[in-house]
Amino acid sequence: MTDTATTTKTEAPRSQWADVWDQFRTHRGAMIGAAFFVFICLLVTFGPMLWTLEPNYIDIRAKNQGPSMAHPFGTDQLGRDTFAQVLAGGRVSLLVGVTAMLLALFLGTLVGVVAGYFKRLDSPLMRLTDLFLALPILPLLLVIIMLFRDTLRAAFGPETGIFILVVSVIGITSWMHTARIVRGDVLSLKEQEFVLAARSIGTPSRRMILRHILPNVMSPIMVSATLGIATAIITESAISFLGLGFPSDFPTWGRLLSDSTNFMTLNPERVIWPGLAISLTVLSVNYIGDGLRDALDPRIRGR
């Protein structure tokens, strides 16, 4: 111990995030997952620029084709290119996943920090969290989307309206776990001495939260961010699969999967691509979350 202490004295002090990155790199599944997730993100962002076929271009003479050079994933019943559709659908699915996750994270962190920091608000906010946890999420999601989509479509146009609806509904119904974890961490942080020191020099609550509390609860927030993306992608696909999501000429992975199940006997490989895209993306995100959890846990780090 003393040897290492003397040798490292000359080096620059290592930051916490460098340690986290070192630990993260040792988790093989997480590295593969991260690489795959970056690959999928790049593919759906820049893919449509390279693969210039329009996802909604109808070529009825080339309908229900299997994989070929012209259409690597085949075509659907109207002759639309499945590869272009999967790329376009991935954009929407990932965008929904990330945006809904950010919304849920914002709500969860807000509720968690406020409940943990202000004692008077703790009990009512936690009762609210318990109440939201007791709501049947999937049925309510379906109900809300079915009932309000026409209003929002009229207000914001068919695609944007549904996007706002799906994202806000998923975000509003999935912040509870983040809130609980963050509250627990804030409660234990509040008892620590650096918080007492900061308070004794008269730090106001606002700066206290932003400067001292929030940076210290980043690790549980990051782990729930990855899990949030995974659940948001699955929920969006489930809604689309049940026929309540985006309009049918607007491809998302769930929508493509649901449309191709009707042609299962005729063209079975068409189902595989969107389903594989959903599953592999969610799997990679879950592995990233697993690796992050290990990397951010100081008890495991450095072993």
Partner: peptide, 12 residues
């Protein structure tokens, strides 16, 4: 099992 949604595993 966590990651594959039932609407894909079912169809598969």
């Amino acid at each position: 099992g966590f990651s594959v949604p039932p609407f894909f595993s079912g169809v598969l």
